[in-house]
Nucleic acid binder design. Sequence first.
DNA 1: AATAGCATTGTAAGCGTTTGCAATTTGCTA
DNA 2: TAGCAAATTGCAAACGCTTACAATGCTATT
Lengths: 335, 335
Amino acid sequence: MQKKNSATIYDVAHRVGVSLATVSRVVNGNSNVRDSTKRKVLDAIEELGYHPNAVARGLASKKTTTIGVVMPDVTDVYYSELARGIDDVANMYHYDVLLTNTDEDPVRETMAVNNLASKQVDGIIFMGNELDHEVVNTISGVNAPVVLAGSLDSDEQLPSVNIDYVAAIKEAVTAVIKNGHNRVAIVTGPVAHAINGMHRLVGYKKALEEAQIEFDDSLLFVTHQDYAAGLQVAERILATGATAVVTYDDEIAIGIMNYLRDHGKKIPEDFEIITSNDTKFTIITRPQVTSIGQPKYDIGAVAMRMLTKLMNNEKIELTQVKLPHTLERRGTTIN
Amino acid sequence: MQKKNSATIYDVAHRVGVSLATVSRVVNGNSNVRDSTKRKVLDAIEELGYHPNAVARGLASKKTTTIGVVMPDVTDVYYSELARGIDDVANMYHYDVLLTNTDEDPVRETMAVNNLASKQVDGIIFMGNELDHEVVNTISGVNAPVVLAGSLDSDEQLPSVNIDYVAAIKEAVTAVIKNGHNRVAIVTGPVAHAINGMHRLVGYKKALEEAQIEFDDSLLFVTHQDYAAGLQVAERILATGATAVVTYDDEIAIGIMNYLRDHGKKIPEDFEIITSNDTKFTIITRPQVTSIGQPKYDIGAVAMRMLTKLMNNEKIELTQVKLPHTLERRGTTIN
DNA sequence: AATAGCATTGTAAGCGTTTGCAATTTGCTA
DNA sequence: TAGCAAATTGCAAACGCTTACAATGCTATT
């Protein structure tokens, strides 16, 4: 049980008989301080159990060594993987992370961003599909660099790290088409969101086009992302005569799979499924779920790395980073 | 795009022609300010786009309205559920959350706590099984209240919120015993950790004792918590002749289940499985996994609520909270 | 109309650091 | 040993806000 009222920089300065400035310098490993005095200061710090007050530091230096992370939901395995990547490199660069859940609510998203700004964070990583004008506006108005992770604004003007969604979805769809399916359903989030309407759906259509299959919008399903949604949409998908589906969320995919199997369908013989996030969920089920492979951890890590550069005023060569994706072929597709 | 160099309280005061104190008062919704001046101040704030600088506020008031959360891994579904509960009630009380991952490494845990202290957080929620003396020491040395969530120190001196692990495990074990098993394996984490050695294992032994079954330590398995561990330990469990298992982690349980099924065992007819965390994992598999039901979100929420009281110097009647648990009977047990 | 007493507002001293600039030392050179 | 540049240090002003305490403005009472 250490003493409660912790020592200040003044105490150690006084103890050693030097000025505040000197102590500050050694604490910051800064500039040139004679070795002998540095040692004395260090000793005093040790003895007094001095710990710099980060708040005071922040006020004086205008740097908080804290970044903000705004995300839909920590509980979502996809985003939490990104968060982990972010956190690890944040720590690597000695930043702390202020975390905010928004549930994709634009109101809460703008509130979160504003709140982080008032907390004087040095930078922000933003995750969330719904980047409407309001949100983009407040983001660009903030006096700190922001980078999007696993997210896109429609104008693609904000720095971001993603995979190439149109290519990825196109590959997935093409894969099932090659396996002989010509009625393949797709389930995404609201088409109004850029990531859906301008990327996933585009990839889907490109694959169809390349296979000379006409787009049938009855095969497009929009749901929110959870297991129950998968269970529910499955029946409707079946009704369309589709024999394969590409989903944007693993829980949905598994919901579909379980529903179909419960209704006598054999997976993958009768019906193929490909999902997008490659979370742990896809591994623990039987059969395991074929998925687009995303470097989730890396998306977070790279985004954070990019943010450090931005915070450091370094020039960024490329602000729209696309990380490589794969197609993890598993049990819900023939091959 | 708002102006970059944001207005300060001084600007507002100057604009309206009042003192800093007055502006501060209206910003803090504080004490008595004449309605007319309040309105003028509010208008000026609006026009100038003034946002209080939380850092300066923190320095002056010695309150940061920020709490620290230290947890093993955001990516872990169990803990992220707790985190969500914490975050929600934190927001409800207008606290922000500084998140730190420790991977259960005591060194990182103490570093995290110290770091949070230097950031002047108003309180800390700590999660992690390994509460060794070092960690407990630095925790109690910190100048801010700390409460454990889903975690226990061996002396149970730190405020905490949990379920009654011994009762819960005892029920689970008893359940399979009642289903006719007399060789039931148990897999936990390191027995040196209080939560395992002093709770889970005790519950297990109590169940055996009540059923007059002798404890056989070859039925005790210690693993870390992931799917691969489950896959690996399954074979060893089988070798002991056990016909049922109670695990402390859902991924392990599913690993065991998948291994056994791949090796011709019928679940639950040939082998019963009960796990402990009742995460989404237990729902999406077929069969679904029987589990102890934990109010994970609530554990986090209640812990955070408790912390607000502590930060507010309110007296706490009960510091060792045990929330009710259930037994969610699903497909990996006969009933 | 004077005054007690409350409501409202202002003053100014912190809060614990950082940091530009000035002052002092030190080490060398000649 | 004087003289000068470089290396160390100290000074003191910020940083943007909170908050005792003091000062002033009111109201109502007599």
